[in-house]
Amino acid sequence: MTAFREQMIAQRQPPDQRRGVIGWLRTNLFAGPINSIISLIVIAIAIRLLWPVIDWAFIEADWVGNSREACTSDGACWVFISARWNQIVYGFYPEALRWRVDIVFAIFAALIAWLIVPKLPAKKSVGIFALIGFPIVSWILLLGGMFGLDHVPTRLWGGLMLTLTIAAVGIVGSLPIGVLLALGRRSKMPLVKGVCVVFIEFWRGVPLITVLFMASVMLPLFVPAQMEFDKLLRALIGIMLFWSAYMAEVVRGGLQAIPKGQSEAGAALGLGYWQRMGLIVLPQALKLVIPGIVNTFISLFKDTSLVLIIGLFDVLAIIQAGLTDSDWLGFAIEGYVFAALIFWVFCFSMSRYSQYIENRLNTGHK
């Protein structure tokens, strides 16, 4: 027996042409005649300008080899990067002990992945370990001299390892110091406010090169001869204090954007000053200035290359040192392009993650 439907099927919506690749192109690039013409012109100009770069960097490039004799084409010679890869990553760290650096890199990558992935549990505990435990573990592994690990002086540190060390310490240290300075500058106690104002304006008024030079060359002249400070440690302290002054002004802008009634409401509930700041004011203020905070982090990461002036070889300095080798003269473009790519990857990642955090914390201020 065959059954027939007595009622018509309800009308369905037509397929949405704005979805998918074709929908995106139609919405953003070819929405109308004028838009289509402009898009085609821009695409043609982009292909005209980018094709020689693509041809040089990928199609005509040399990738495999151990010396410049392997670079036989007219394209880029990425053999320079592959031949010096270990030095670019580890600097002058002893080859037999580089497994310690690999462990630090693995822990760092695992912590970043754990904090980024939304559904993973125990983020608070992982965050506390990342801020407190991980720096201690990394310092023990990299420096050695304890728990049976061979001591590796910081003068042998270099490359990407040194760049990430300076950037991580500067970022982790400058944010809490900057928050305290911002709160101190808004304090009603004249002495506290005065000290914070002098600190902030002093460090913002001198260039970072001067700070590094003073920390490396001048500071030892003002301490007893028997007291020695590690050069890397002096640079880390200088970078941390320098960027904490800039971070303080960013945070202060967020504090000024919060209405005074928020703090007054907390006081009416019987909350103390630090409770009001920690539970009410600061969470709102920091959320508003996420772009400024990440912008400061990106500037800090790029300025790690300035440590070259005090004899520390970060990833850019290692590449520059490799370009002075007589066996690799004439391949400066490949080295600088690769260094720029490294900095761009880390800075772009921080920028994209900050946008993700902004969207996740958005509570209807638009």
Rank of each mutant, 00 (worst) to 15 (best):
K188M: 14
G194S: 04
G20F: 03
A268V: 13
L269I: 09
T2C: 08
I22R: 13
K124P: 01
M214H: 00
T165N: 12
L141T: 05
L162V: 00
V117D: 02
I116R: 01
I310Y: 04
P33S: 10
T154Y: 10
W24A: 07
D230K: 04
G159D: 05
E69C: 02
V294G: 01
A332I: 15
A57Y: 05
P52G: 09
V315E: 13
L25S: 04
F297T: 00
T72W: 00
I34H: 06
Q256Y: 06
A44P: 00
L141G: 00
V179P: 12
L282S: 00
D325M: 07
A215R: 06
L160S: 09
S39Q: 03
W114T: 13
V250T: 14
L236N: 11
F134T: 03
V223E: 09
G184H: 04
V315W: 14
I310P: 06
L316V: 15
I333L: 15
S354C: 09
G178D: 06
V89S: 07
L306S: 07
M218N: 03
I209S: 11
I239G: 07
E201G: 01
Q226D: 13
W328K: 05
K287G: 14
Q355H: 15
P224Y: 06
A70M: 03
V89C: 09
I132Y: 08
A109E: 01
L25A: 07
I103F: 04
F346C: 04
P153M: 00
T324H: 12
G170V: 07
L40Y: 06
V117E: 05
R84F: 13
W114N: 03
G322R: 10
K260N: 14
F331C: 08
Q355N: 07
P135I: 11
S216C: 01
A110F: 13
R48C: 02
D327V: 10
K119D: 04
P220H: 05
V281E: 03
G194I: 02
S263Y: 12
V104A: 07
A182K: 09
I237M: 10
K123M: 06
R19I: 02
R185I: 09
M277C: 01
G159L: 08
L300S: 02
G322Q: 08
R98Q: 15
V137P: 08
L142D: 02
G266R: 06
S326E: 15
T363L: 15
F331V: 10
L156K: 10
A61N: 02
L361A: 13
I22Y: 07
I136W: 14
K124G: 15
G292K: 01
R12N: 14
W274M: 05
S187Y: 04
L40D: 04
I116V: 15
S73E: 12
V169G: 02
